[in-house]
Simulated assay, not measured.
Amino acid sequence: MSLFSDNIRVLRVRQKISQEKLAESLQITRGRYVKYEDGTSEAPYEILKKIARYYHMSIDLLLSVDIRKIDIQHLLKLENNRLVLPIMVDHQGENYIEVVTQKVKAGYLNGYADPEYIESLQQISLPFLGPGKHRGFPVEGDSMPPHEDGSIIVGRYVERLGDVQDGKTYILITKTEGMVYKRLNKNKKNALVLESDNNFYPNYEVRLSDIIEIWEYRCNIGRTDKKQELNEIQDLKELILDVKREVNEIRKNKQ
Results as ranks from 00 to 15, higher is better:
E119G: 00
A113Q: 14
Y112T: 00
G132S: 07
L126E: 04
P138W: 02
E116D: 13
P138A: 11
L129Y: 00
L126F: 00
D142S: 15
I124E: 04
E119Y: 06
D142T: 04
G141M: 07
Y117S: 04
Q122S: 14
G141P: 09
E119H: 07
P127V: 07
L129C: 02
N110I: 11
S120R: 10
P145K: 12
N110K: 15
F128G: 02
P127L: 07
S120M: 12
I124F: 08
G111M: 05
S120P: 05
G141N: 08
G136P: 09
R135G: 00
G141V: 10
E119F: 09
E116W: 11
G136Y: 09
S120E: 12
G141T: 08
A113F: 14
P127H: 08
P131E: 03
V139F: 00
K133R: 11
D114G: 07
A113K: 12
V139M: 10
G130R: 01
E140V: 13
V139T: 12
Q122V: 14
L129T: 01
Y108E: 02
G111S: 08
A113E: 01
L129I: 05
I118T: 07
I124T: 01
G130S: 02
Y108N: 00
P138H: 06
P115C: 12
G107P: 04
G132W: 02
E140P: 03
Y112N: 04
F128M: 14
V139C: 06
L126K: 00
F137D: 06
F137M: 04
G136W: 07
F137V: 06
P138Q: 14
A113C: 15
Y117M: 01
Y117P: 06
P115D: 15
S143W: 09
Y112D: 02
V139L: 02
V139R: 03
I118R: 03
P127Y: 11
P115Y: 14
L109Y: 09
E116N: 12
S143G: 10
L129N: 05
R135L: 10
P115N: 11
G130C: 03
P138L: 10
E116T: 12
S143H: 12
L121G: 06
G107S: 11
M144F: 00
I124D: 08
Y117R: 08
V139Q: 10
E140K: 15
R135Q: 10
N110T: 08
S120I: 14
E116L: 15
S143D: 14
N110M: 10
S143Q: 04
D114F: 05
S120T: 14
G141R: 06
P138C: 05
G107A: 10
I118F: 00
G130M: 02
